[in-house]
Write a protein that binds this DNA or RNA. Structure first.
Lengths: 338, 338
DNA sequence: GGCATCCATGTTATCGTTACCAATCCAAGT
DNA sequence: ACTTGGATTGGTAACGATAACATGGATGCC
């Protein structure tokens, strides 16, 4: 009747079952040595009492939280969501739980976030990108847990890496575009120096054009990352006005590419006949739009799955030195380009 | 030199600063009474030692985790992502952190997930949807923390509610479609009994047609939820073959609606002249596609923001009885319908 | 001057679980 | 019969922070 009483603890369950708290503790673990009947009796008593296992105490005493901390730039991005889902699916089989935070494409925010996440004592930490503030690098290095950088191939990794070169991926699209005859090629991306992957893609674009003996004056900055479909459409409007003779445009993501495509449709500009469009990320929209989008598949799910395998191997002690897993993005040619 | 040593604790910081551990603890809190110079000295010593605050100990002793547990059906859905983002932004200002899990549109999975989340002792728990297993209801009721059901208006809420009626929202679209003259109206959704919000929308659709004296034989089940763009396209293909005289179709989400639209484009079927299309959720794709999508704005971000306010009020003791916040979805008429 | 008040800091015990070690019991091996 | 060993269970202390209470000194007010 008096519900003011505190929630039951293992001691309460132990008393009710007629065993020691230690045995209750064991009954709640997977592989510990309790007899089948004892375990069942304990779990029954726990259910009757409405006992809920208290992770906070367990975490402190065992020095294990079973958290895997993950930072992504935005929670609202299908690519990163795919990575997180694959990662989560795999590690949750082993009883590990994702502790997710987002940085809003800002390395300062990332620093703040990572500091906060590390206080929770995760078993490992996965970060998106390979560019960080010096303090972030220090925090991660000293954390004493596996660190995995993803979606990038940093020159000086902090720990492990599962990623690819954003610059190289765009370069391959440029190479293809040049090979099929496009010369006046533009790039639509976000404002520089914020989304580091986007900046890498833009630099890859510029470098690739240069290698083909081409200039790269057609760079449209569409605002602070991430660039939405609408911003992609606006950017395409700008591009068409400033550089009406543009033959092809590469966008920092499929979302902006699709926006750009719709702007062409609204203006009655034929794609790819008048202008070709390339995206990045192989979002579902690109596969299904009419016309479908030429893009680059960065294998987001695979990044998550391989990161999970890496983490499990490290935690199992099967891997004791930093490891670099390289993903090879795939150029997917569809209807918005030759 | 010997890095094998254990990570520093507050006691180490205290020793180095020349104060008691209690003072160190206070220095790490926001509003506690420590002199400015003491706080700075403590933080400096902590930085020098590479001390990282240990939440696990704090959580146990203070019986506070500053976690807000949140369950969503899928991490890869822009609507739920918007809700979580708004929620997260608001509560993180107060030092609260989201602990996110996804149910994969399955109430059994939801039960498993919620049990796991409750073990972490969150300050409050936010669940998506108002349909749960009996055990889930019991777990939530007994958890002793605020429970908020969202994206639905359950008849018997467990605690607080921030949501809307999915059935009613679709009904309004049907009403409009009938008012402007459509009679042969179809519905594209997922297989029944899994995505409960999708099922509510389908039932609202059927009930609304019935109220207008119309039958509802044109129901296309496109597979297990969530329905992707491609599945929407496939469903539209089926619909066009089985019911070629259909005048309008309402889709369970904008994603399937866009897929359906592209299928029409591939088949050269004029939208909305030959067939009208309505979606749900006001995703960005619907605003920017050509033609743009008639849809329903469910105010995903507002759900998150209001949920956050609710949680903060309850935690501040400003609210001591269950509260129901009703969102009123908005019908947005665009180019895919009259 | 005396006493209340406030601010900054210290002391002690504790949150609930589990690591570690010990003990018991029964079966099997010598 | 006696040791050995595995399986199951129990006792005790500890994880690292902080709630609760206590203390000393400065300040303010009549």
């Amino acid at each position: 009747m008096h519900n003011i009483r505190k929630p039951p603890t293992m001691a309460d369950v132990a008393r009710r079952t007629g065993v020691s708290p230690m045995t209750v503790s064991r009954a709640f673990k997977r592989d510990s040595s309790v007899s089948q009947e004892t375990r069942e009796a304990v779990l029954r008593a726990a259910e009757e009492l409405g006992y809920v296992f208290d992770s906070t105490a367990s975490n402190l005493r065992s020095q294990r939280t079973d958290f895997i901390a993950v930072t992504i730039p935005s929670i609202n991005n299908a690519n990163f969501a795919d990575t997180v889902r694959a990662l989560s699916d795999r590690v949750s089989e082993r009883g590990l739980q994702i502790l997710l935070g987002y940085t809003n494409y800002d390395v300062r925010e990332e620093e703040r976030l990572i500091e906060q996440l590390l206080r929770r004592k995760p078993e490992a930490i996965v970060v998106t990108g390979g560019k960080h503030t010096p303090r972030t690098r220090k925090l991660l290095s000293n954390a004493g847990i596996p660190v995995i950088e993803t979606w990038d191939l940093p020159e000086e990794p902090i720990g492990h890496v599962v990623g690819f070169s954003n610059a190289q991926a765009v370069r391959e699209m440029v190479d293809h575009f040049v090979a099929v005859g496009y010369r006046k090629i533009a790039f639509i991306g976000g404002d520089a120096d914020r989304d580091t992957r986007g900046a890498d893609r833009r630099q890859g674009f510029i470098a690739a054009l240069k290698d083909h003996g081409l200039d790269a004056p057609r760079l449209i900055a569409a605002g602070p990352p991430p660039i939405s479909m609408r911003e992609g459409a606006n950017a395409m409007g700008q591009l068409l006005e400033r550089f009406p003779d543009t033959e092809a445009v590469i966008c920092v993501s499929d979302l902006s590419a699709f926006g750009a495509l719709t702007e062409c449709q609204r203006r009655g500009i034929a794609v790819p006949d008048k202008i070709a469009i390339g995206g990045f990320g192989d979002y579902e929209i690109g596969a299904i739009s009419v016309p479908s989008l030429t893009t680059i598949n960065a294998f987001a799910s695979e990044i998550g799955a391989k990161t999970a395998e890496l983490i499990l191997d490290v935690l199992d002690g099967k891997l004791d030195q930093p490891c670099r897993v390289t993903i090879r993005p795939d150029l997917i040619l569809r209807q918005t380009s030759r």
